[in-house]
Simulated scan of single mutants.
Amino acid sequence: MPLTPLDIHNKEFGRSFRGYDEDEVNEFLDLVIKDYEALIRENKELQNQALALQEKLNHFSNIEETLSKTIIVAQEAADEVKNNAKKEAQLIVKEAEKNADRIINESLSKSRKVSLEVDELKKQASIYRARFRTLVEAQLDLLGQEGWDTLDAGPAAGAGELSRG
C-alpha cells in the first residue's frame, strides 16, 4: 500500500538518547509532506491528462477508422460508377452500330428498289418509244399509200361543183 501524506504526518519516531532534534525532524517531515502532496496532485493531474488524451486518441482513432471505411466505400462506389459507365458506353456503341447497320441496310434496300424502278422505267420508255415509232411508221406508210391522192382532189373538186349549182 502506497505511503500517503497522512501516514508521513502521523509517523512518530521513538526517542532515544542522543537522537535527532525533534523540531528539525518535524520541519523536514512537513517539507516532505508538502512535496509529497504536490507530487500526488501532479500525478493525479497527469493521470487525468493521460486519460483525456487517451479518450481523444480513441476518438481520433475512431474517426480515422470511419474515414478509412468511408474512403474504401467511396472508392468502391467510384469503381462501380466507372464500370457502369463503361458498360453503358459499350451498350450505346453497340446500339449505335446496330442503328448504323440498319440504316445502311435500309439505304441499300431503297437503293436497290430505286434501281429496279429506274430499270423498269427505262424498259417502259423503250417499249413506249418502240410502239410510238411503230405507230408513226404505220401512219407514214398509210400516208404514203395511193388512195390519199384521190382524196385530196376529190373533196376540193366536189366542193367547187356544189358552189356552181
Score class of each variant (00 low, 15 high):
S107N: 14
A157Y: 11
I40A: 09
E88S: 07
K44N: 10
V136A: 10
A77M: 07
N43W: 15
A78M: 00
K69D: 14
K98G: 00
K110P: 00
N10T: 15
L39E: 14
E37D: 02
A138M: 07
L116V: 05
E45I: 12
I72W: 00
E12Q: 15
E12I: 09
K123T: 06
K98Q: 09
V25E: 07
N26V: 09
D7E: 05
A153N: 00
R164E: 15
F28P: 00
A156C: 13
L140W: 13
L140V: 09
R133V: 09
S61Y: 14
D23V: 14
F132L: 12
D141V: 06
K34M: 00
K34Q: 01
L67P: 03
A159W: 08
D141R: 11
R112I: 15
Q47M: 10
G158W: 15
E12N: 13
R164L: 12
A77N: 11
S61F: 12
P2K: 07
G165N: 14
H9I: 12
V25W: 05
V118A: 03
Q54S: 15
V136H: 11
V25C: 04
E88K: 01
A38C: 03
W148Q: 13
L142T: 04
E64F: 08
I40V: 08
N10K: 07
V114M: 09
S126R: 07
S111N: 13
D35A: 11
